[in-house]
Computed example of a mutant assay.
Amino acid sequence: MHFALMILPTILVILCGHFVRRYGIVPAAQWPGIETLSFRVLFPAILIVSILHSPLQISTVGPMTIAVALAFAVTGGLIFVLHGPIRRAGLDDPGFTTLFQTALRFNGLLVLALASDITGPEGLALISVVVALTVPVINIVSIVVLARYGRGQATLRSVAAQVARNPMVQGCGIGVFLNLSGIGLPDFLLKPLEMMGQAALAVGLLAVGAGIQIRRLWARSGWMWLGIGMRLLFCPAVFLIIATAMGLSGLPLLAGLITVAMPTATAGFIIARQMGGDAELYADIMTWQTVLSALTIPIWLWALS
């Protein structure tokens, strides 16, 4: 019960966003603009501020980042190894790209909001650094797989351009540069970023809730459940095994677990639609992952304790 209560405020804000959209308090047509505001302005702001204030010590950040990266690598690698059997079992290549994406991607808006509630500023800073280091790699790998197995076409230049234009990547890059260079920011620039960062958490969670489509919860397929299990169960389990073997403990262990236990990112749905992936399957998996993570995250926090 204690662990469920830890994420209850986050769940309530997500539910608020869902009902605000469902009952037309904010019309459905306006939510894409709210999502764009969160993704392109508010969350880059909180990443810049968090990383700027973070002591980027390799001894703290390095092992945690390695454990997270290895967990994602093992999860994505297993899906890739299973490509042949999955194809022979009846799932086409666009569907395979969706399984791959939903196993690797994590919802950055949700992980930062939850980190702020559970781990406080120190954990938020650690997770911000992990986001800075893992999001570009996950984006590149996912886009390359889509370019190879999806219905669309992509070049190395277009892949690099998509990653470079990602606002989360840009925000992380700016934060790391300002931190390591020692330049910092004057108060008249830092204060507006802090204000936008405070707004980011609530607005981002409302947008996550608004994106939940109840009709998707009636979808049923073995492939959908495979995608759910790989993200919410397999990847966190692999992380805990790796982190334990590395001797990771305390706040870095908690922050890393929260990162790998998140549901998949909404950005993957857009990329799947643009690059010839199975966008419908992605939407089904994403909706179920978001809802079920309200149960699995407290279970993983309990397991960690």
Rank of each mutant, 00 (worst) to 15 (best):
L52C: 08
I66E: 05
R105D: 12
A73V: 07
A73Y: 06
F106G: 04
L56I: 13
A103I: 12
G76D: 05
P55H: 05
A113T: 03
F80Y: 14
T60V: 14
A103G: 13
L109H: 13
V81Y: 05
V111I: 10
L99R: 08
S54W: 05
V68K: 00
V74P: 02
Q57A: 15
T119I: 02
A113F: 00
L56A: 10
P94A: 15
F106E: 05
L99K: 09
R105Q: 13
A115H: 01
G84F: 15
G77I: 04
I66M: 06
A67N: 02
S116E: 01
V61N: 03
A67G: 02
V111L: 04
S50L: 05
N107I: 05
I79P: 05
A69L: 06
I51H: 07
D117V: 11
Q101S: 13
A69M: 03
L110K: 00
A113I: 01
V49Y: 00
A113H: 02
P94C: 12
N107C: 07
L110F: 02
L109V: 12
I66N: 01
L112F: 05
L91D: 11
L99D: 14
F80H: 09
S54G: 11
V81R: 04
I58N: 13
L112T: 05
P94L: 15
F80D: 06
L70G: 04
D117M: 06
P63A: 06
T98I: 11
P63I: 07
F106T: 08
P121Q: 04
